[in-house]
């Protein structure tokens, strides 16, 4: 499992969902969690933290957001040498085949489908962590 001090960014335009995800991550032992309310505000945060040498290790991003959507944020993260290896998990209430395929082609690591519980998020995180460490 990811260590408790993993630097995590939660991106969602809905304040209540950011609160729910932070609460969920806290229940799983994670305390180093930063929030962004849209892909547009998230991207400079991601770049700045990467440039400082202490980049985010895990991004949990909503898919449907105004301005910069989750899929575009994923594209930017994977296109930048400093951020391309960051674990990126998409959080969505809709999982259409076309969307899933597009995100998979861009290198998304996993999906969390809403509604979610701490156990379902933990399961996804463990899957990604084990996959990364087996590679």
């Amino acid at each position: 499992m990811f260590p408790a001090n993993t630097k995590i960014l939660v991106v969602d335009d809905m304040k209540t969902m950011r609160m729910v995800m932070k609460k969920t991550l806290k229940a799983l032992g994670f305390e180093n969690v930063t929030e962004a309310d849209d892909g547009e505000t998230a991207w400079p945060l991601i770049q700045q933290s990467a440039s400082s040498g202490e980049g985010f290790q895990l991004i949990l991003s909503d898919w449907n957001m105004p301005k910069v959507q989750g899929i575009e944020l994923l594209r930017r993260v994977r296109s930048d040498d400093k951020t391309k290896n960051t674990v990126f998990i998409m959080v969505t209430a809709e999982s259409e085949k076309g969307q899933v395929k597009e995100a998979a082609q861009l290198g998304v690591d996993q999906y969390v489908i809403k509604p979610f519980t701490p156990d379902s998020v933990k399961e996804k995180l463990e899957f990604v962590y084990n996959k990364k460490n087996a590679a």
Binding site: M14, T16, M17, N64, T92, A93, E94, K114, P115
Partner: peptide
């Protein structure tokens, strides 16, 4: 709104 989004998604 978020709960409605999730209900719609289902």
């Amino acid at each position: 709104a978020e709960l409605l989004n999730i209900i719609f998604g289902h």
